[in-house]
Design a protein around this nucleic acid. Structure first.
Lengths: 195, 195
DNA sequence: TCGCCTATGGGATCATGGTCCCATATCGCC
DNA sequence: GGCGATATGGGACCATGATCCCATAGGCGA
C-alpha cells in the first residue's frame, strides 16, 4: 500500500491486518519502487495524488518493470477521467475514499484471488519457457517447422541438411520438451505464443 | 448513438457525419434494441442516464445478446464509480459532456478500428466453426483424441472400434477441416478453444 | 422403396516418423 | 590437449499413418 497520508496508512494497515493480510505500507512511490520485489502474490493499494510521483506514474513504472500485481486505486479527490484512465490502463479497481471497509476487503480479496490464479498459469508457462530455452538454435529452428506441420523432407530441403539430421534434431526436441507427440508439442507452443 | 436529449443527438449527428461516419440516432434504449442489428462494424455512443432504461442497463442487454460493438459512454453528470464500473464492464471509453470534438472523433475512430480488427479475426473463426460443424459426431470424437496426440490404436481401444475405422474417420476429419497435418489441425482447434 | 449419409471394417501398398547402433567434424572452454 | 556440446550423417529396423478399392449395415428422408 502506498499513500502519503500517515493516517490513511495506519487505518488501512489495521483494517487489512485485522482481516489476516500481510501489509507493507509506503509513504512514497519511490520507496515502493526501491524496496518492493513485485513478485509473488498479493495486490497493490495505491493513492492517486502524491508528491513527486503520482499513483498513475507509479503504475506505469510497474508495468514497465513487468509487474503483474493487481493495482487498486484509492483516492480522496478522484475525477471521472482519472478513474476511467486508470481502468483503461489495467487497474483492478478505482475506489473513492472514504471506502467502505467491507467493500474494500472484498475488492482486495478478489484482486489477490485473481493474482493467484494468474500466477499459477504463469508458473506453468515459465516451466515451458525453461524447456524451450534448453533447445539449441538448430533444434529450435527445426521445431518451428515441425509445429507448422512440415514434413521431415521439406524441413531438410529448407535447411539444406539431410532428412536423417532433421530426425535427430526432432527427436531431441521431443525429449527436451517432454512431449511424446507432435500434437502435444503444438499445444505447448500455442500456449506460449498466446501468453 | 443513443441519447434522450434531442439537442445532443442533433449536434453529435452533425459532428460525426461531417467526419464521414454513417450515424443512426435513437432517443431511447428500447428503440435501439428493437431496430439495431448489432452486427457489422461501427461503435455505439451511449448516454448514461436516460428514462426507463439507462446506458449501463442497455450495455448489459447488448452483452447478453452477444454484441461486440465497442461502447463509448457520453455523460453530462458522471460520477467516478459510474465511469469505473462502465470500464470494468467492458466499455471502450467513458467521456464527459461537453466532449472535445477532436477527442471524441479520435475515440470513435479508435473504437471502429478496433472493432474492424476484431471482426476480421472473428470471421476467420466463424469459417473454422462452420468446418467443425460439418463433422459427424463420431468424427468430432475422433478428432478430440487426435489433437491430444493419441495413437490410432489407443483411440480405437477407447472407442471400442477397429484401428481401420479410426483411420477412416481421421482422414475425413482432415479433409473436412482442410488441413494436411496434425499440427495444423491442433492449431485450428487451439484457436477455436482460445476464442 | 430407393438413395444418401454414417459407421464399420478387410486387404494391400507406400510414405513417413521413431529408434537403435554407429561415425565425423567443429567449436569453445578448462 | 582433451572434453563436452552441437551439428551432421549412414544403415537397419519397426511402428505408424495415408491412401487406394472394396464391402456391409443401419437410419432417415424424398
Amino acid at each position: 500500500m502506498i499513500d502519503d497520508d500517515a493516517d490513511v496508512r495506519g487505518g488501512l494497515t489495521r483494517l487489512l491486518r485485522s482481516a489476516g493480510w500481510i501489509v507493507d505500507a509506503y509513504a512514497a512511490a519511490q520507496d515502493f519502487l526501491e524496496k518492493a520485489t513485485c513478485d509473488g502474490v498479493g495486490c497493490i493499494l495505491l493513492d492517486v495524488s502524491m508528491p513527486r510521483m503520482s499513483g498513475p506514474e507509479l503504475h506505469d513504472q510497474l508495468r514497465a518493470r513487468g509487474s503483474r500485481l493487481p493495482v487498486i486505486y484509492l483516492t480522496g479527490h478522484g475525477t471521472v477521467s482519472l478513474g476511467v484512465n486508470a481502468m483503461r490502463h489495467g487497474a483492478f479497481d478505482f475506489i473513492e475514499k472514504p471506502a467502505d471497509a467491507d467493500a474494500l476487503l472484498r475488492v482486495v480479496n478478489d484482486a489477490v484471488t485473481k493474482r493467484e490464479q494468474a500466477s499459477a498459469q504463469e508458473s506453468e508457462l515459465d516451466e515451458l519457457r525453461r524447456r524451450l530455452a534448453r533447445l539449441s538454435p538448430r533444434e529450435h529452428e527445426v521445431m518451428n517447422h515441425v509445429i507448422q506441420g512440415r514434413l521431415n523432407k521439406q524441413i531438410a530441403a529448407d535447411l539444406n541438411i539431410g532428412v536423417k539430421t532433421v530426425k535427430v534434431h526432432r527427436g531431441r526436441v521431443m525429449a527436451k520438451m517432454k512431449v511424446r507427440s507432435v500434437a502435444q508439442l503444438v499445444h505447448l507452443c500455442d500456449a506460449l505464443g498466446a501468453a
